[in-house]
Amino acid sequence: MTDIVVPQGQWEPDQEAALATWLYGEGEAVQEGVTVAEIMVEKTSFEIPAPASGALSILVAEDEIVTPGQVIGSIK
Rank of each mutant, 00 (worst) to 15 (best):
T2D: 11
T2E: 14
T2P: 00
I4S: 08
V6K: 09
V6Q: 11
P7D: 09
P7Q: 07
Q8A: 14
Q8E: 15
G9D: 13
G9A: 12
G9P: 12
Q10A: 02
W11P: 08
P13W: 04
E16Q: 14
A17M: 08
A17E: 09
A18Q: 10
L19F: 07
A20S: 11
A20K: 13
L23H: 10
Y24P: 05
Y24T: 04
G25Y: 00
E26K: 12
G27M: 01
G27E: 02
E28L: 08
E28K: 06
A29I: 02
A29W: 12
V30E: 01
V30A: 05
V30N: 02
E32I: 07
V34E: 09
T35Y: 02
A37C: 13
A37N: 11
I39A: 10
I39G: 10
M40E: 15
E42S: 14
K43D: 14
K43C: 10
S45A: 12
F46K: 01
I48R: 03
A50P: 03
P51T: 05
P51G: 03
P51F: 04
A52R: 02
S53Q: 06
A55I: 00
L56F: 01
S57M: 03
S57G: 11
I58S: 01
L59W: 13
L59H: 15
L59E: 15
L59F: 15
V60D: 05
A61T: 04
A61Y: 01
E62H: 03
E64L: 04
I65W: 00
I65K: 12
V66N: 10
V66D: 09
V66A: 09
T67D: 06
T67W: 03
P68H: 07
G69N: 10
G69I: 08
G69S: 09
G69D: 09
Q70V: 09
Q70G: 05
Q70A: 10
Q70M: 14
Q70P: 05
I72F: 06
I72H: 04
G73T: 06
S74Q: 11
S74D: 00
I75N: 03
I75G: 06
I75C: 07
I75A: 06
I75M: 08
K76M: 02
K76C: 00
